[in-house]
Computed example of a mutant assay.
Amino acid sequence: MNKKYTFYNIEVMQKGDLNGYIQGDITFKYNNTEYNHEFLFRFNDSSNGDNNKLVSIDYSYKIPYIEEVWPEIEKYLIDYIGKYKIEKDGLLLIKRDILFQKDDGLLQALLSTGLCENKGNWIIKCENDIKVMKELQKACSEHMKTVKNYEDYKLCFANETDYKDNITIK
């Protein structure tokens, strides 16, 4: 990715007027200063124009090199949404990587729920569903009761495409 901009607060919209869009913030550096702008990307709303198009970046006319990076930004967002799985009902689902201490017993406890998938090399994936994550945390808690100093151990469920987007379950 070009160092002239950075994405953050990316949100895939699945309801309401912005269903089928990604919105978020992007920081550009120009005039020796960083400036924050909002963007809107359409991936699934052909009634309003072509899909997979960067619709707008607010105040883009102020960014001196916007024409140079526009296609690059659009490609990044196409790749970003491509990592999502589109279900038949139109909702987008991401997978969560489960981050945990390497412990064979814990691995087996999680897999025995049938709610996650072992991808090998200690990479375990589950659906981005709070009910699934709660059940996996419950299995973790049951197993970790037997491990000294880890009685309150919490799993971390990270977005498979962006580990900064992670949650723990109580």
Rank of each mutant, 00 (worst) to 15 (best):
D152A: 05
D103E: 13
I57T: 00
D152V: 00
K164L: 09
N149R: 11
F39R: 03
T161V: 14
L107V: 11
N166L: 01
K75H: 11
K3T: 15
T6S: 11
D89A: 00
I66T: 04
L106I: 02
F41M: 11
V12E: 02
E87Y: 14
T113S: 02
D103T: 04
I78L: 06
N121Y: 14
F7K: 06
V12P: 02
K3E: 15
Q14C: 01
K145Y: 10
V147G: 13
Q14E: 09
V132P: 02
W122L: 02
Q101K: 15
K83L: 09
N44P: 02
E67A: 14
F7M: 06
D17M: 07
P71Y: 00
N51K: 02
N52E: 00
F100W: 08
Y65T: 06
S47K: 14
I123W: 05
Y35R: 14
E38Q: 06
N9C: 06
L136T: 02
C140V: 02
S60E: 12
V69L: 07
F7R: 04
L136Q: 06
Q14H: 00
W122M: 12
P71C: 11
D104V: 06
M133S: 00
G49S: 07
I22H: 01
D58N: 15
C156I: 05
G105A: 10
S141H: 06
N2M: 12
V55E: 10
D50K: 08
N2G: 07
T146Y: 13
T6L: 15
F43V: 00
G20C: 04
K131C: 09
C126D: 05
N149F: 13
G105H: 15
K3S: 15
K134G: 01
Y61K: 14
K134P: 05
K145P: 09
E34I: 13
K138R: 12
N121I: 12
Y59G: 13
T168H: 00
I26L: 10
L91C: 03
L106Y: 07
L18M: 04
A139M: 12
E11C: 04
Y35P: 07
Y8Q: 15
G49V: 07
E87L: 13
L91Y: 04
Q108G: 13
C156G: 03
H143Y: 12
E38K: 13
G105V: 15
R96F: 08
K85Y: 14
E87I: 07
Q108M: 04
G90H: 07
D165Q: 10
